[in-house]
C-alpha cells in the first residue's frame, strides 16, 4: 500500500470473470505520514481507508468485467462495518463480488480479512461512466498491470 498515493491494492490474487469476484492483497505500511496524525504514538489504519481499499478492489473488479470500457466511481457505502483495529504491518486479504450490474451503476459486496479474521465489510455502489479522457483509461490499465490484474482472459 502507498497510502499517500491512494494505491491501496498491492496485488491481485485472483479474478474470476464467471464468478464475478476478485481477490486482492495489500500490506499496511509500517510507516506513513498518515500514522503521524492517526494517531500520534498509536498508529491505526483509518477506517475510511479500509473503505477505500474495498472500493478499489471492487473498482478493479468492475473494470475487469467491463474490460476497461467504463470507469466506476464510488457513489455509496452501505452497511459499512469496521470490526477491529488494523495496525501497521497487517496483511490484508480483500475480496469483492459483483452484486448487480445496473444501467450506469454497479453494486458490489466487499470484505477484508487478515489471517482469516474478518476486519470489515460493506456494500458499495458505483456510478459507471465513460472515461473522461483516453489518458485516464490508459492510466487505469497501467495500474491494473501493476497489481497483476489479468482482465483480458476469459
Amino acid at each position: 500500500m502507498q497510502l499517500e498515493y491512494f494505491q491501496m491494492i498491492d496485488a491481485v490474487a485472483g479474478f474470476d470473470r464467471a464468478g464475478q469476484t476478485i481477490d486482492a492483497r495489500a500490506t499496511v505500511p509500517m510507516e506513513s505520514p498518515i500514522f503521524e496524525g492517526h494517531f500520534p504514538g498509536h498508529p491505526i489504519m483509518p477506517g475510511v481507508l479500509l473503505i477505500e481499499t474495498m472500493a478499489q478492489a471492487s473498482g478493479y473488479l468492475v473494470l475487469a468485467l467491463n474490460r476497461f470500457t467504463r470507469m466506476p466511481f464510488l457513489a455509496g457505502v452501505k452497511e459499512g462495518k469496521l470490526r477491529t483495529f488494523v495496525e501497521p504491518g497487517a496483511v490484508l486479504d480483500i475480496t469483492a463480488n459483483l452484486v448487480h450490474d445496473g444501467s450506469g451503476f454497479a453494486v458490489t459486496s466487499a470484505r477484508i480479512a487478515t489471517a482469516g479474521k474478518k476486519l470489515c465489510d460493506a456494500s458499495l455502489t458505483f456510478r459507471t461512466m465513460d472515461f473522461p479522457k483516453p489518458e485516464f483509461a490508459t492510466m487505469m490499465r497501467a495500474q491494473a498491470e501493476r497489481i497483476g490484474l489479468d482482465w483480458e482472459t476469459e
Binding site: G76, G102, F105, T125, R127
Partner: peptide, 9 residues
C-alpha cells in the same frame, strides 16, 4: 440521483 440509483437497484 443517488437515492434513485438505490431505487432502480
Amino acid at each position: 440521483s443517488l437515492d434513485f440509483l438505490d431505487i432502480v437497484f
